[in-house]
């Protein structure tokens, strides 16, 4: 697996870690311009760390769903092109605004990812949809947002089992999500994100033609 351009393994005082170049956002370690991308704090970071074939090369146009305070999407904006960040909770968005201040290519949107019509007048068709919404109905969110992906685009999703059903076995939840997702997407690779994120499944998928 190759890392996207703009993401490197960098040495932080004896510890090697994924890193991007940009203003720090969440108290991560830095070395000059380089900022550590902590896979324990970021599901996309964990997917890259696990060697999943994300297809990311750098400079993509990205729609990011569930941006929260901007931990991961700030790294994405460091190596990608125009990056649209959707988050529906006002509190974390305050910090997302701080992260976007120094990133001209990061566009924060206080919108509900289950209502794509409320941001399709702003977001253009994208190469990549990153999804980390940790809410019930994660497969449905992915299906609803398929309209944003170009034909050869990629969905990079992190599915949290406990968000679908606290009591069920995660393996069963993941089976259901995979099945539901397959209606709209061709799944290219799936992998558990342990030990970085317990009971999370990373998914790389491509939209099926309608």
């Amino acid at each position: 697996m190759t890392l996207p351009a703009g993401v490197e393994r960098h040495d932080f005082g004896g510890e090697t870690s994924l890193a991007t170049q940009g203003q720090p956002v969440y108290g991560e370690r830095t070395d000059g311009d380089w900022r550590r991308w902590d896979p324990h704090r970021s599901k996309l970071g964990a997917m890259l760390e696990q060697g999943m074939e994300t297809g990311l090369e750098g400079d993509e146009t990205v729609l990011y769903l569930g941006a929260a305070a901007g931990t991961t999407v700030s790294h994405v904006a460091d190596f990608a092109g125009p990056t649209y960040a959707v988050e529906f909770a006002p509190r974390p968005v305050r910090e997302l605004l701080d992260a976007a201040e120094s990133r001209q290519n990061l566009f924060p949107l206080l919108k509900d990812a289950r209502k794509p019509e409320s941001y399709a007048h702003v977001v253009e068709p994208v190469d990549v949809v990153v999804q980390d919404v940790a809410t019930r109905g994660q497969a449905r969110v992915a299906a609803l947002n398929k309209r944003f992906l170009t034909d050869d685009g990629r969905l990079l999703a992190a599915i949290k089992a406990r968000s679908e059903d606290v009591t069920a076995d995660p393996a069963d939840v993941f089976d259901n999500v995979r099945e539901e997702l397959s209606a709209e997407y061709e799944l290219l690779e799936t992998a558990r994100l342990d030990p970085y994120h317990e009971d999370h499944l990373g998914i790389v998928a491509r939209p099926r033609e309608d």
């Binding site: 605004l97 201040e101 290519n105 924060p108 206080l110």
Partner: peptide
């Protein structure tokens, strides 16, 4: 266009946050 988009999404989102909080 992207410069303008950055300006207006920042302004719109911070207004929406203030309103909703």
């Amino acid at each position: 266009y992207y410069d303008r988009l950055h300006e207006v999404t920042m302004a719109a989102t911070s207004a929406a946050v203030a309103e909703q909080e």
